[in-house]
Design a protein around this nucleic acid. Structure first.
Length: 833
RNA sequence: GCCGGAGUGGCGGAAUUGGCAUACGCGAUCGACUCAAAAUCGAUUGCCCUGACGGGCUUGUGGGUUCGAGUCCCACCUCCGGCACCA
């Protein structure tokens, strides 16, 4: 019978569903396996939109291989799945088609759920969750309230990134090259009241705790580190006497303070208007600020942009030397970073230098040195290197690094500055003026408020969830569509009982996915988000798997949540994911797959045509899974050919051999037996060494190839037959993590056992060593012959064998051997002159 | 500009501690089976010279260390990813 994956796959999927094979119990529940060490294997939960794509296939194929391997290595593996089901695409679809987001989302979840079943992923479905259900978001809201109580969630007016197309604000992390990450529209800045999470409070811990991680890809850590962007320096106060205003600046180079020749404010600086009100400069400044305000972040950040700005007609005093330096407004100073004001040192900063050239401002050098590699002016400026101080009063002659500390110490004494640390990281903006998300659980109460400002009153935990109301129109109009649900908005203040209105913004979906890995552990809990003891048992996630596109956003938010929840006393771990595996992206024809390019690959079609085992094994065989790979149909067919070969081998072996003892095999039977043990050893080592699934699969291919090569000589005798049966069953056992259905089927036919209930095989060391080795003989480092030599042969014996070779002798002829290198068991190198 | 990663046959890739470069797969060529094709099974397949035996060359480039380098060191080139007027 030909290999029929459909039939085999349906059969085993039914067994696993029927027997709930992959479900695991919590401590205290019946069926709990306390004797085994736990292992939490988790893939990032999918966002259910349309159908699963190849990225999903790869992620879950990789994760499932790890889960299967660990189970058979004696771990109690928890391997859950859920759906990140709130979010913009479902809502945009609703606006376009009128279909309520809930319906489209639930249809998509059903489709994902069905396909994951068809892929045969070993999920504990009893723990399934979806973030859009009240049973889930009730606890998302609860966490929000915990953060609010701790002052980690707050509401404030701030300049925010606004996407005009999606009509919502975005987190900084969701703005890519000045455009909305989702729809590509250029974002604009607006001042709005918004909710934030105080992630900046955790910036130092987020950096320091990289040390607590067991194994994360270096580049992911680097990306987060860059994103957090910690800079050490000093805050220095410059005073404008005329206006009676102090302007603190942040600088990483206090050693260059004596070189400051002008001072620049960001166009958004709050004191700017007051500073120029009623002066000659007022008109020009206002015009400049308006012009800058109309520009997009992208235009403003353009690389080759010329410096622009306007003088303010005011001066500030440089605290180190009492010098008055002129003030400017310029858009190269950003309000979001530091204090929105800088001291400009053109001699030692290329941006300040450009500005000084343009506005013909003085350039004063305060550090000596040259920097030959970089294009400089005749004086070697701007110079960013180290060197002795000059023109800096009593600090002259000191190295600039020593002067740095001395100047900061002096500033501190004088009360004009202090050491300071600045982060690029901003607080996490979590409110969205959109419908399809978890409502923010607060109300605004005039009665509880003061002076016309309503009070923010949190909804008490026992009144959660604040359910998302049904609405007719999902289109955003600059405020949340929830505002239209008048009956829902009008409510009672939980504090005073008076009339109040609900917050109509919803939460960013990244909030939902920042804690889901905890809810899996106790998904049915109606009393609490989770039971502390249960969470302590399973956490942290031992192996997290997902796309590198989440390297910053999701992974950093989840780390922040974990730390905040640990501080609240409800979690015991500081880091959620001990080990992270970031899979590479699959391309087609060398390009990222996209519907517009028409180069998408539908996993469903391939599963239909070749079976899930082929599709799963293929994505693991394409190359190292952390790297990307190009999808080719020929490659899929190659894997399918291999699985078919294993299938046909099984049929022939089942028919023509009997189970028996393979122990005393000799000759070719022993050769195949040794190959099987080699494959076990190779597969086990490669599984543990990173996740080199491509070479694990290659080893099984070799075993199957050797079985084909040798089988005709082995069918005759019982020992040979027994070895063939063993080799084929071993191949099935090793391929099982990738092709679980075929692996289970072949293994059961040949051994009568259920492969997933069998421990992972262990190679017999006696069969890994062979009696003879291939001795490589080199002359002057060049390969001249290969000789079969006894494995135990000593130096002298190997040298004798080497010299005895005719091919070698030809190259020794008439020359002196000046050196002999012998690596026992491997090689002889004769050096001649 | 700063940070990270990678360059190996026609293609995807392998090479674990400095010791047989190109495992495994794809593609290609040939053969067996077939009326024929597909499927399958088997053989060959880095490049160059040679009729053959055999020899030379080869891991982005150039140097170095070493008996021996894809692997270590120095300099450079190219590509990919992240960050970027961040003071």
């Amino acid at each position: 019978m030909a290999y029929d994956p459909k039939q085999i796959e349906r059969k085993w999927q039914a067994v696993w569903a029927e027997e709930r094979t992959w479900e695991v119990a919590n401590p205290g529940q019946p069926g709990y396996e306390g004797s085994k060490p736990k292992s939490y294997v988790l893939e990032m939960l999918p966002y259910p939109s349309g159908e699963p794509h190849v990225g999903h296939l790869k992620c879950y194929a990789v994760g499932d291989a790890i889960a299967h391997f660990r189970r058979r290595r004696g771990f109690e593996v928890i391997h859950p799945m859920g759906f990140d089901s709130f979010g913009l695409p479902a809502e945009n679809n609703a606006i376009k088609t009128g279909e309520p987001p809930r319906e489209a989302t639930e249809r998509s979840i059903a489709s994902f759920r069905r396909q994951f079943g068809e892929w045969g992923i070993s999920i504990d479905w009893s723990r399934q969750l979806a973030t859009h259900t009240p049973e889930y978001y009730r606890w998302t809201q609860w966490i929000f309230l915990q953060l609010f109580e701790k002052g980690l969630a707050y509401r404030t007016e701030a300049p925010v990134q606004w996407c005009p197309k999606d009509a919502t604000v975005l987190a900084n992390e969701q703005v890519v090259d000045g455009r909305c990450e989702r729809c590509g529209t250029e974002v604009v800045q607006r001042n709005l009241e918004q909710w934030f999470f105080r992630i900046t409070e955790y910036a130092d811990r987020l950096l320091a705790d990289f040390d607590r991680l067991e194994s994360w890809p270096e580049h992911v850590i680097t990306m987060q580190r860059n994103w957090i962007g910690r800079s050490e320096g000093a805050e220095v106060v410059f005073r404008c006497e005329e206006a009676g205003l102090d302007f603190p600046v942040f600088t990483t180079r206090p050693d260059t303070l004596f070189g400051a020749t002008f001072f620049v404010l960001a166009p958004e600086h709050p004191e700017l208007e007051r500073l120029v009100a009623g002066t000659e400069a007022e008109e020009a400044v206002r015009e400049y600020v308006n012009r800058v305000g109309r520009e997009s972040a992208e235009e403003r950040g353009a690389e080759d942009r010329e410096k622009t700005g306007v003088p303010l007609g005011r001066t500030v005093v440089n605290p180190v030397n009492g010098e008055e330096i002129p003030m400017y407004v310029a858009d190269y100073v950003l309000m979001e970073y530091g204090t929105g004001a800088i001291m400009a040192v053109p001699a030692h900063d290329s941006r300040d230098y450009e500005f000084a050239q343009r506005f013909e401002l003085p350039v004063r050098r305060v550090i000596e040195g040259t920097d030959p590699d970089v294009a400089r002016d005749a004086a070697g400026l701007p110079y960013a290197g180290d060197g002795p101080m000059t023109g800096s009063g009593r600090f002259d002659g000191k190295g600039n690094r020593d002067a740095y500390a001395a100047i900061v110490a002096w500033l501190e004494e004088e009360g004009r500055g202090r050491p300071a640390v600045n982060f690029r990281l901003r607080d996490w903006l979590v409110s969205r003026q959109r419908y399809w998300g978890a409502p923010i659980p607060v109300v605004y109460c005039e009665g509880c408020g003061e002076a016309g400002t309503p009070a923010i009153v949190p909804v008490p935990a026992e009144q959660l969830p604040v359910e998302l109301p049904e609405v007719e129109d999902y289109a955003p109009q600059g405020k949340s569509p929830l505002a239209a649900a008048a009956d829902w908005v009008a409510t009672e203040c939980p504090r005073c009982g008076g009339p109040a209105r609900r917050e109509t913004d919803t939460m960013d979906t990244f909030v939902d996915s920042s804690w889901y890995f905890v809810r899996y552990l106790d998904p049915g809990n109606g009393e609490a988000a989770w039971d502390r003891a249960v969470a302590d048992h399973w956490l942290p996630v031992d192996q997290y798997i997902g796309g590198v596109e989440h390297a910053i956003l999701h992974l950093m938010y989840a780390r922040f949540f974990t730390k905040a929840l640990a501080d609240l006393g409800v979690l015991d771990v500081q880091e959620p994911f001990a080990n992270l595996f970031a899979q590479g992206m699959i391309t087609r024809d060398g390009a990222k797959m996209s519907k517009s390019k028409g180069n998408t690959v539908s996993p469903g079609e391939y599963v239909e045509r070749y079976g899930a085992d082929t599709a799963r094994t293929y994505v693991c065989f394409m190359g190292p899974p952390e790297r990307g790979g190009d999808w080719t149909d020929e490659g899929v067919e190659g894997v399918n050919r291999f699985l078919s070969r294993l299938w046909r081998l099984c049929e022939e072996v089942e028919e023509r051999t009997e189970p028996g003892d393979a122990g005393g095999a000799e000759g070719e039977a022993r050769e195949l037996l040794a190959k099987a043990h080699w494959a076990v050893d190779k597969a086990t080592r490669d599984f543990q060494r990173g996740f080199q699934f491509n070479t694990v699969i290659a080893a099984v291919m070799e075993l199957v190839n050797d079985s084909y090569r040798l089988k005709d000589g082995l069918f005759g005798d019982p020992a040979g037959g027994a070895v063939l049966r063993f080799a084929t069953a071993t191949a099935a056992s090793l391929i099982f993590p990738f092709a679980p259905h075929l692996g289970a089927e072949v293994h059961q036919r040949l051994t009568g056992e259920r492969v997933w209930e069998q421990p992972w095989p262990v190679a017999d060391p006696a069969l890994l060593a062979s009696d003879t080795v291939t001795l490589v003989v080199q002359v002057n480092g060049k390969l001249r012959d290969r000789i079969e030599a006894p494995a135990e042969a000593g130096k002298e014996e190997l040298l004798g064998l080497a010299r005895g070779s005719e091919k070698v002798a030809r190259h020794l002829d008439g020359k002196d051997v000046v050196k002999e290198i012998v690596v026992p068991g491997k090689l002889v190198n004769l050096v001649v002159r």
